[in-house]
Design a protein around this nucleic acid. Sequence first.
RNA 1: CGGGGCGUAGCGCAGUCUGGUAGCGUACUUGUCUGGGGGACAAGGGGUCGCAGGUUCAAAUCCUGCCGUUCCGACCA
Length: 573
Amino acid sequence: MRSSQFFISTQKEAPADAELISHQLMVRAGLIKKLGSGLYNWMPLGLRVLRKVEAIVRDEMNKAGALELLMPAVQPRELWEETGRWAVFGPQMLKIQDRHEREFCFGPTHEEVITDIARKEINSYKQLPLNFYQIQTKFRDEIRPRFGVMRAREFLMKDAYSFHTSHACLENTFNRMHQAYSNIFTRLGLKFRAVKADSGAIGGDGSQEFHVLADSGEDGLAYCECSDYAANVELAEAVVVGQRMTGVETMQIVDTPKQTACEDVAKLLGIGIERTVKAIALMAKEGIENEQFYLVLLRGDHQLNEVKLTKVEGFHDFRFATEEEIRSHLNCPPGFIGPVGVLDQVKVIADQTVAVMSDFVCGSNQPKRHLSGVNFGRDLPEPLVVADVRNVVDGDLSPDGQGVLSLCRGIEVGHIFQLGAKYSQAMQATYLDEGGKSQVMEMGCYGIGVSRIVGAAIEQGNDENGIIFPLSMAPFAVVICPIGYHKSDAVKQAADTLYQALQQAGVDVLLDDRAERPGVMFAESDLMGIPHRIVIGDRGLADDQVEYKQRQQAEAQNVSLADITQHILTQLN
RNA sequence: CGGGGCGUAGCGCAGUCUGGUAGCGUACUUGUCUGGGGGACAAGGGGUCGCAGGUUCAAAUCCUGCCGUUCCGACCA
């Protein structure tokens, strides 16, 4: 491609709403342009990148035995009524009507449609297993679209759905998909990690997420250096160490005039924050109407894990209590509340780490006062429920007993689920087994955020000059920057010849034949993240030399004009 | 949905408090000089100041309503 024939529209300044570096660079390099909130135009340069990602995903899916199809983006309401998800999915689903006022949604996912295909098309065990996938535009009306294509409302996703006669067969395909995903992210040149995950709204049992590692990632991950244990923090199990020691202190009131946070109380008393206990007031639904007031106890330096709490009996549906509710149940303002001496109607649940603490400090339920030397059994009853409801922290023991956990952040780019019979049961996707008996299919589902990958890759690869794309997804592999293309016949001839040679060798090459100054060409090719650059100028040509530089290298090297084609091909392998 | 910010040229912003000729940088066009990291000079083009009402002789500016957008708390590839 010649730059003069292409569409390059770079900007020096990023739009004010671009917060993440990847978002800023994607707009500045002219990969994407915003149309509306969470809606982006993929410009020719950006589309080249997106297509390269797509091609790798498609190739590995095909290799793993999945079959590509394409389902409609728009789906009828009736199908979603069958699984009950028309109501469950909520405002995240974009609902639309046709001219007959029939209701549809713009598909946020395709379980219903694919299961409909399966129940219509699959009759016999002889047809199974099957794994269908598509690369399709989805729409989710996100509460807060942000970060450019990383959390857009409309996005490109690869989604696959497999059908099986047995759980063992499902596991087999699940493992194959796990391998395929590893292959995909490896080929894309990304630093990534597979972690155990919560299956969320999609449902199902076994669930693994694939994360591109980046400090700006929205998910916290816990992993073990000594083993292959890795999990989303939402799910990562906290291991309790030791047993409760017998208390030796007596319970005392301590004045804490201004100290409400555990950290400040600990500082005032000159003790470690890990000796404090905080109480979080919640209202949990009991039955349809009633709500129960709860205190959840956590060690002062720990944080509540809402996903874990949801799984505790009785906390299926909870919310944080308001200040008024706290005052009316405890007769005390927030900041000084605690589990000692509370009324019977206040139920106390303790994180398992708290349950083994003794001689701890907690709120007194009196303004400006805390209690020290507090012990379960003596100063307050044993907690009603003990459960793992906190986030793991750096240095916690790994649940597999192999060392300790470290934390990092990641961008979720893939998620694979074992759905089981959730959708096939609801929609009666059945087949006849060897005995002629009707059976419900087992299902798996496997997603990759194709457009998100582009943002994630840039989040991982950038410097002060712009994007550093891995070769696998760069819009062009090589850029030729001729100095004085329109002034020097020698330069023009050398550049044109090299351009043709590389093209014939099948290299994705961009020839910057614009009448731009060198500085502009360098700045723009760096911004766009093109991995290899060749500079041709009269100065070097006098000695039959051209300049070669990789995007992430600081210094260029001279290569003879005769060798440059081969040199590039070697670099690209 | 709750709370804050912002809507002025493609992009980044000033001007609004204190009403009176719509501005700056960048990008764009033309010319000259330049020519190895977004070059210099000169001359240009581009705006119903988010929309609709209202106050006023006069509104980007003040008032009301709406819309969009964005940031902070509950979703997810």
